[in-house]
Design a protein around this nucleic acid. Sequence first.
RNA 1: GGUGGAGUGGCUGAGCGGCCCAAAGCAGCAGCCUGCAAAGCUGUCAAACCACGGGUUCAAAUCCCGUCUCCACCUCCA
Length: 458
Amino acid sequence: MGLELFDSKTQTVREFTPLQPGLVSMYVCGPTVQSAPHLGHLRSALVYDLLRRWLEANGYQVTVVRNVTDIDDKVLVNAAEANRDWQEFALEVESTFNSAHTSLGISEPTRSPRATEHIADMIALVESLISKGHAYQAEDGTANVFFDTSSWPSYGELTNQKLENMEGEVEASFGRRNVNDFALFKAHKPGEPESASWQTPWGMARPGWHIECSAMAKHFLGTEFDIHGGGLDLRFPHHENELAQSSANGDDFANFWFHNALVTIQGQKMSKSLGNGVSVEELLIAGSWAAIRYWLSSAQYRSNLDYTANSLSDAQAALDRIGGFVKRAKLVTSVVKAQLPEGFVRAMNADLNIPAAIAVLHETIRAGNIALDAQEIASVTEHLSEVSAMLDVLGLMLGQPKEFSAELTAKIEKLIGLRSEAKGSKDFAKADQIRAELTDLGVTLEDLPNQTIWSING
RNA sequence: GGUGGAGUGGCUGAGCGGCCCAAAGCAGCAGCCUGCAAAGCUGUCAAACCACGGGUUCAAAUCCCGUCUCCACCUCCA
């Protein structure tokens, strides 16, 4: 059985078949670069990285477009507060996202377009919508342009809502005809930087939030593509509005809608507006990037993931177990090409059940350890190779071995040599003294049957 | 008011009609290894039965009904 994914539009798990054999096109809503990323953003980025890896492991050529929303109310507000040029500010925040992604081992999207680079595409799309009777310039004559929700009977189809049940704006404002109509372009406001507005057929304006995704998805992926992803909190209004714009324009848009659940803290959503987001800096005090990645993988993507004080240390302990096996196994054998275990494949295909896949990883490690104890090298090789293949798919990093100076390495190895000699001549006092010396240097020794390996803590 | 989702061992977290008297990890306990440790490994422990009360079924954590609690979205958010 092949890959099955939950499609949040139909609210069913469906077999995934790409529109074009062998190719997968995916659009992911990336960050609004208004402030530095927190754990929740990392989860979202990681989910799509894992999906991409699994698709690639299955032989698909995957095109991932992840946008950067670099023009938005909050970007302008936050930049102004920081007394910065908004474009510089946006670029800087974007780079903090990028470096966090890189550190987490998230591969770069095929394309990562910025909203401000596609104003022309957005204008074209809005003109098309106006000509089809689905959008209008503000009644008050400003450059505001709105989508006319009353012209689109399917509005609400993504989130299964009826227009009359929606709360909408308190009152029609800025020239809206209807409280649920949403902005496609926003007229330039006095006080906002000139640079934050563009010449449009309706006057100087900047794009609304939703139009960029419709325009850029079409630009890079065409009128129809396989998967549209983003955080659960984007389903409404953002994705609902994207769908309305694109489908009102006659485009088929996404075949699968994919929404990752959120990271919570004390049961509450982690969010910029609640101010309870755990920043990258705080995370790195609690654990390593590897631990963060492992922990973020530990719940299925549609389940909330609650961050607690122990989260990263638990993850690190699990990771150490994995790393310990790999390290020891590699002393007696090496990795060969291996098939992924059937249970692992089954778990990944079942709507990307990473925690179940990780369970298979641990089971394989246990079997590998047993083989290691029994000195059954062929079996160790097999298990090590399977583990390696699984780690590859999961993109799990095993605490990249730190580089130490040759000088330090030589010193440590010399001390270990002396200790071994002391042990050989049963001079345990001396051996223990050397071990204590190494402990002071932060070096942890591990005595294996015929050698001593070492690592440096922290 | 509307639309979704969740409640599983000390913690995290899979399972969503029979293979479940419930995966995996962490923590706990014991043993192995060791000169002793550390680290590591192995085993084991754990839920008077999966929020509660009914029901359907030969069979339910898994389906249905009711109740309680919690979360998300309907305003910017991954």
